[in-house]
Amino acid sequence: MTKQSPPDTLRLVVDLNRCQNYGQCVYAAPTVFRFHGEESLEYDYAPGEAARREVERAAAACPVQAIALGAANEPSPLSAGSDR
């Protein structure tokens, strides 16, 4: 049985200490990452499932591997029943 990923749970974070502004993510996923000014990387932590392919490409392309994607399969803490 394959693990099921719940819908709309694409999440990411960039370690901006590690980031060196190569900008590969901006090319790979321009709807998710952008440079504000020349040097300030901004990104959407929760861009929606439709962006998953490009976000995965961006994470793979990052020369310093600064992009981490969510990998949890359990329900979000705010979904019903998590507060047992």
């Binding site: 990411l12 504000h36 929760a46 969510g70 507060d83 047992r84």
Partner: peptide, 24 residues
């Protein structure tokens, strides 16, 4: 603040399952 990112689009990714009781 500049309006590019909605405040609720800052949720951190959960990097693995943690099987926790959450009291938020």
């Amino acid at each position: 603040l500049s309006g590019w990112l909605p405040a609720d689009h800052t949720t951190l990714p959960r990097l693995r399952d943690i099987d926790a009781h959450w009291l938020l």
